[in-house]
Design a protein around this nucleic acid. Structure first.
Length: 99
DNA sequence: CTTTTGATTGTTGCC
DNA sequence: GGCAACAATCAAAAG
């Protein structure tokens, strides 16, 4: 029951508790984001009839089929962006502390 | 301290 | 321009 049920995710942006982070920095991309950038076209070629929803579903299916080593390059990119996000986090924390 | 969840990232296609 | 499933990620709030 902690999964979907009401699909209460960022899509709604309900902010039930309200925005805690005054100036929350944009977090790093996930490995899947980079996977989409690289395989999005390939899946579209493999599934020319598939719409966005189908393509995304297939992409996720393929992604889950990937091994850790296969995810390595994508996770590495995600980790690289994480470094970028980490810098933003530093500034964000600094703002929270100072401001 | 542990768990949950809320927020965010990028893609394409439709309205 | 925003939102739809897809997966990940992570920081903060709640317990």
């Amino acid at each position: 029951m902690t999964s979907e049920t009401t699909k209460t995710t960022a899509k709604d942006r309900i902010r039930a508790r309200g925005k805690k982070d005054p100036r929350a920095p944009k977090r790093a991309l996930s490995a899947y984001m980079y996977y989409s950038q690289d395989h999005r076209a390939r899946v579209r070629q493999a599934n020319p009839d598939a719409s966005f929803s189908e393509t995304g579903r297939i992409l996720g299916n393929e992604w889950r089929s990937l091994s850790d080593v296969d995810r390595q390059p994508y996770v590495e990119r995600a980790a690289r962006d994480k470094s970028r996000a980490d810098a933003e986090m530093d500034a964000y924390e600094a703002r929270n502390a100072d401001d």
